Amino acid sequence: MTILLTPYLLLIMATLGLWFKDKRIAWGLFGLSVIAGLVLQRITWTGLLILLISVALGWVTSRKGRCPVIAWSLLLLLALASIVHLLPGFNNYLWLDNIHLSDKALPIRTWVNFDKPAIAFVILAFLQPFAHKLSEWLEALRSWAIMLPSILLMIAIGWGSGFIRPDLTLPFWLPLWALINLVLVCISEEVVFRGLLQGRLLTPVLGPKVALVVASLVFALPHYPGGPALVALAFVSGLFYGGAYLLKRRLEAAILLHFSLNMIHFIFFTYPAAR
């Protein structure tokens, strides 16, 4: 199992490495993750071609002019397809299969994905501003703190609807799950929905409210396999993540809020949902 996780762990390090000013190490780790994925058959040559196309689209999108609009649209389509795992060439790894965290919860099934976070890495590397200075991190933390009460509301909605119930869970593999969830889920999804989609829709024509609602709706739709209740909860949570992003245009605030909710849900309530 440890060997099969190698491409994903390298991708995690590459993604976190983007927050350093020198991006060469991050790109090097990304390249190693792709090579490891090919060797361990987590990626095929078709998947490699898709990643190269995403890099080209990311580079063009970061330029000025008319072509970047077309490139942005194609990159968004690739990103959305990766989120629902429609891209060919990626053999994602089933890490936890039919695990019952408690008698109160439905069984958990966790895939460790390469397609979604790899496309998100490219978007993050080319298009997103990072918090480097202390003042920038403080802006992100303030935005996160302002929106933190929204987690209580989300928990109240989930508990009141019967979707979740109190249930303390601390499995030994929680630290690895938390790392995977932070980078391969929270960062990846916020990069696409808040950074690429909502950020680009923040124009004088549409305005912040329309951008927020559209991004939240698109964020909610991939949750449909979990049923209408999960889609509704995802839409509301998307509004809060987008709100955290809007306050100071700091993607880190949305990532932290998303991760905070996921961790509280996992540790203190039935995960993924109540029976």
Rank of each mutant, 00 (worst) to 15 (best):
H85Q: 15
S102V: 13
C67S: 15
A273N: 11
A253L: 06
V236A: 01
T44A: 06
G242N: 05
L251D: 00
L9M: 13
G207W: 06
A36T: 05
A79E: 07
F20V: 07
H132I: 14
K23P: 03
G89V: 08
A156S: 12
W137E: 08
I35Y: 13
L86T: 04
L96G: 08
E139V: 00
A234P: 11
E190K: 11
I267P: 04
K104Y: 08
L9R: 02
L101W: 12
V60W: 12
L52W: 09
V112K: 08
V192S: 07
A120M: 15
V236F: 01
C67N: 12
P171V: 05
L4N: 14
L261M: 09
W159P: 00
L239C: 03
L217V: 14
T110G: 02
P7W: 08
G243W: 07
W45N: 08
T270L: 02
A215D: 09
I267F: 06
L51C: 00
T6Q: 11
S161C: 04
L57N: 00
A229L: 14
S82K: 07
S260P: 12
S73L: 14
I53Y: 10
A274S: 15
P204W: 05
I99C: 02
L124I: 07
S135T: 11
H132N: 10
L4R: 14
D115W: 10
P68R: 11
L94M: 15
Q128S: 15
L77A: 11
F30I: 03
I50E: 05
L202G: 01
W173Q: 04
H100G: 02
A156G: 04
H85C: 01
L202E: 07
T15G: 04
C67A: 15
L5A: 13
V39N: 01
I53W: 11
A120V: 14
K23A: 13
L176I: 04
L87A: 06
G65R: 13
I255Y: 14
P208T: 00
E189P: 15
A56L: 13
V39R: 05
R109Q: 11
C186V: 13
L106P: 03
W159C: 03
L48P: 04
F126L: 09
L182Y: 10
Q128E: 14
T46H: 12
K248C: 00
A26H: 05
S73V: 06
W159K: 07
S161T: 15
F130T: 01
N98T: 12
K104I: 14
P166N: 02
S102Q: 11
A178V: 14
I187P: 03
L11R: 05
L251C: 08
S135I: 07
W19T: 03
F235I: 09
A254I: 09
L74C: 07
P272H: 01
E189A: 08
P149H: 14
K248P: 02
A118I: 01
H223D: 03
V55L: 06
W137G: 06
